[in-house]
């Protein structure tokens, strides 16, 4: 069963991830312009990009545990997942800046005064070095430091999860489920660490 999954995955090209990753926001934007996203297309777009980014972050975070625990190998897609995640975060941010808040002074005030936005921005900034070094040249050039830099993915995804928990009103379950999954995936790192040290 696992062998079959891995064989199928091996045949799926990496560029397929980028293609799918590009089609989705294009389709959303088309719907937004033509009225297919309901009465508030701005929020629909903003929330869709944010939520997909969070889901992709979780998928990226699941690659290693999936390989170690279930022997499912998504390794060759990991960088593509990361790059698509980052581009969704950028789109989420752009929709918020340009279509939602619009006013520069209000944007700055929001970032400074509203904790869930401050945290979202912090997550974005943590992801910047990851995105900038997601190319072969950087991997070769940075060597061991590349791995260290990419540990930033852990705090970034944690802040992303917190951003969602903090922005909802009242007591809501869904963002807490995301945060729990993120915490669980981060915990698997703790148990891998000694193993890696032993090798």
């Amino acid at each position: 069963m696992i062998d079959f999954v891995n064989q199928t995955l091996r045949r799926f090209p990496v560029w397929g991830i980028y293609l799918l990753g590009g089609i989705y926001p294009t389709w959303l934007l088309y719907n937004g312009v033509t009225g297919g996203l309901g009465p508030d297309p701005v929020k629909a777009l903003e929330h869709a990009m944010g939520e997909r980014a969070l889901q992709l972050m979780i998928l990226g975070l699941a690659v290693t545990p999936l390989r170690r625990l279930l022997r499912v190998n998504l390794m060759k897609f990991r960088r593509a997942i990361g790059v698509v995640t980052f581009s969704y975060v950028v789109l989420h941010l752009l929709v918020w800046l340009v279509l939602d808040v619009q006013i520069v002074s209000q944007i700055l005030a929001d970032i400074a005064k509203r904790p869930y936005i401050t945290i979202g921005m912090a997550a974005f900034i943590l992801m910047l070095p990851l995105a900038l070094t997601s190319n072969n040249w950087s991997v070769r050039r940075l060597g061991r430091r590349w791995k260290q830099i990419h540990l930033l993915a852990y705090p970034a995804v944690l802040l992303g999860g917190l951003h969602y928990v903090m922005l909802v009103k009242g007591f809501q379950i869904e963002p807490l489920i995301y945060l729990t999954v993120i915490l669980a995936l981060l915990c698997t790192r703790l148990s891998f660490a000694p193993k890696r040290a032993a090798v």
């Binding site: 009465p39 701005v42 777009l45 209000q106």
Partner: peptide, 21 residues
């Protein structure tokens, strides 16, 4: 101001994706 949202401006729904605040 509200802790979550500035109340200085609003988005009037019905104006589509590119409506100004």
């Amino acid at each position: 101001s509200h802790p979550r949202w500035s109340q200085a401006s609003e988005r009037r729904l019905g104006g589509g994706l590119f409506a100004s605040r």
